[in-house]
Design a protein around this nucleic acid. Structure first.
Length: 516
RNA sequence: GGCGCUAUGGUCAAGUGGUUAAGACGUCGGCUUCUCAGGCCGAAAUCGAGGGUUCGACUCCCUCUAGCGCUACCA
């Protein structure tokens, strides 16, 4: 059964605000790449959980696989988290009293070794010298026999002394051991999951004795997590569904060491809409990384808004929320149990909403897009901020999904002119076209530079009534003469923004080329 | 194969025995008497299937099916 109350250590946290100081959650990425959408989601929900209950949010780097760590992985992750608006109480750069915050450093300091030794001494773990070839052939044999892969304990029936003797024998052969945990298969591991309710898994289903320390001396993930979560006083673990089957392994270590077990919550996964599978870093067809969205000009608030609604729903009907609003509303019982497809269209819509809501703040970014697209130089842009923001508004920012899209919207006719097509020539040189052009040219030249969109509209309406020409036959010749386009934003508004001398030059050019 | 989890429209989802089954994205249609964008209005679901329980089931139970996850000296 799901319940709103989370017990830690044994009291409902919602009833007493001053009890919430015990809440400590963590985001624990491995620095193998940039911040993935899925990881961002885990981080955001952990942050929300911590902040909603006035708890602490800490970041721990799980870099026990040195082969997979990449140079700037950690920095990039943290930078992107900060960009999203998250903050944290403890991290490698902001050590608290539970440091260090990188598992590699914790290992160097010998934090894990005493617990490995303790388990060894208690006979709950042992040294295993099987080679990867042996392991592979055992597994193959099991699969061939249609059995579930299961580790085969090599010291069955031996006394401790006999086992020690074996160790020496293997060592003499120059073999390096890993440490395996002796899994109690008669136990059932059960917990009340914060999102999924009651879950239980039999010790028999673990797959047998698993490695807690690798041959290189590094602890494995499932072991280090337990040690660190305990030592760092983590009270709640909110993570992806894909960790459900790790949970019993971790529980047995907590138990073996005599420690309290944190509350677990396993969130449904984000899946790829096309493949239906867990969103994977290898899916090239979906933008996977927060950084990619940032580069296209998605707003951090929009990313948070979108992710916050993926696998979680608020009570009312609103859809646009800030991080702070999510924090106020957060309720772990509203976390969805079913996987959610990543819907890029919805993200686009949410980002559009945020850009419009926050247009003044987004404007500098929009202008920067024009500079990086080479439409205008930086110095010129600096001098024409007001004009550029008018152009951007007239061109239709209201319709774009992310800032990068403004470039193509604004390019023509504000920075370049289209070629005149045959269709345009037809509009221009028709009988109506010639009349309209002449009337328009006269009217426009008579108008002051300060004319408003309304003035231009009135002028065009006036031509409509005197010439009795309307619709495209009226508008297109004017559009073509001034912008070389037959479609685009509202013409009167464009005319306000367009440089008058350029418009006149364009009109003269059109006239000389097609209307003499 | 085994174990675990999940199942409301194309998508995100509300819904906890009696509702016309919310809302949003997307799609389609109409209007906004130049186009595009925007705005406004409107349309579309036998609640995975089959059995029960009940006066009554999207809601409870059982079975099936499907999907996903895990099954490493990765995390």
């Amino acid at each position: 059964m799901r319940r709103k109350c989370i017990y830690y250590p044994s009291r409902p946290i919602n009833t007493l605000d001053n009890m919430t100081e015990d809440i400590r959650v963590r985001y624990a990425p491995s620095p193998t790449g940039h911040l993935h959408i899925g990881n961002a989601r885990t981080a955001i929900f952990n942050w929300l959980f911590a902040r909603h209950y006035n708890g602490q949010f800490i970041i721990r780097i799980e870099d026990t696989d040195s082969a997979r760590n990449i140079a700037d992985g950690e920095k990039s992750q943290l930078d992107n988290l900060a960009w999203l608006g998250l903050d944290w109480d403890e991290s490698p750069e902001k050590p608290g009293k539970y440091g260090p915050y990188r598992q590699s450093e914790r290992n160097e300091q010998g934090i894990y070794q005493p617990f490995i030794d303790e388990l060894l001494a208690k006979g709950m773990a042992y040294k295993s010298y099987k080679t990867s070839e042996q392991l592979a052939s055992e597994r193959e044999a099991q699969q061939a026999a249609k059995q579930a892969p299961h580790y085969i304990y090599e010291y069955e029936g031996m006394t401790a002394e006999e086992r020690e003797a074996k160790y020496e024998e293997f060592e003499a052969q120059g073999l390096k051991p890993v440490i395996r945990f002796r899994v109690p298969e008669d136990r059932t591991y059960a917990w009340e999951d914060i999102v999924k309710g009651h879950i239980e898994i039999s010790g028999k289903e673990i797959g047998g004795d698993w490695v807690i320390q690798k041959a290189d001396g590094m602890p494995t993930y499932n072991f280090a997590v337990v040690i660190d979560d305990h030592l760092m006083a983590i009270s709640h673990v909110l993570r992806g569904d894909d960790h459900v089957s790790n949970t019993p392994k971790q529980m047995m270590i907590f138990e073996a060491l005599g420690w309290d077990i944190p509350q677990f919550g396993h969130m449904a996964l984000i899946i790829n809409g096309e493949t239906g599978k867990k969103l994977s870093k290898r899916d090239e067809n979906v933008l996977q990384f927060v950084e990619q969205y940032k580069e296209l000009g998605y707003q951090p608030q929009a990313m948070v808004n979108f992710i916050g609604l993926l696998g979680w729903s608020p009570k009312g009907e609103d859809e646009i929320f800030s991080l702070d609003e999510f924090k106020q509303m957060f309720d772990e019982t509203r976390l969805s149990k079913a996987n959610a497809k990543f819907d890029q269209k919805k993200l686009e819509w949410i980002n559009n909403q945020w850009m419009r809501r926050d247009l003044d703040n987004v404007m500098p970014q929009l202008i920067r897009e024009l500079v990086s697209a080479g439409l205008i130089s930086q110095s010129e842009a600096d001098n024409k901020v007001d004009w550029l923001s008018q152009v951007i508004k007239v061109a239709g920012v209201e319709g774009i999904s992310y800032t990068r899209e403004i470039v193509d919207l604004v390019r023509k006719p504000f920075f370049e002119l289209n070629d005149i097509t045959d269709e345009m020539i037809t509009y221009l040189t028709s009988e109506d076209g010639r009349k309209v052009f002449e009337a328009w040219e006269t009217a426009y030249l008579a108008m002051p530079e300060t004319a408003t969109a309304e003035d231009y509209m009135n002028t065009i309406r006036h031509i409509q009534s005197t010439l009795e020409i309307k619709g495209r036959n009226l508008w297109n010749p004017i559009r073509i003469a001034t912008t070389h386009e037959v479609q685009g934003p509202n013409l009167p508004e464009m005319l306000v923004v367009l440089d008058r001398s350029k418009v006149i030059a364009t009109m003269n050019q059109v006239k000389a080329t097609y209307l003499v």
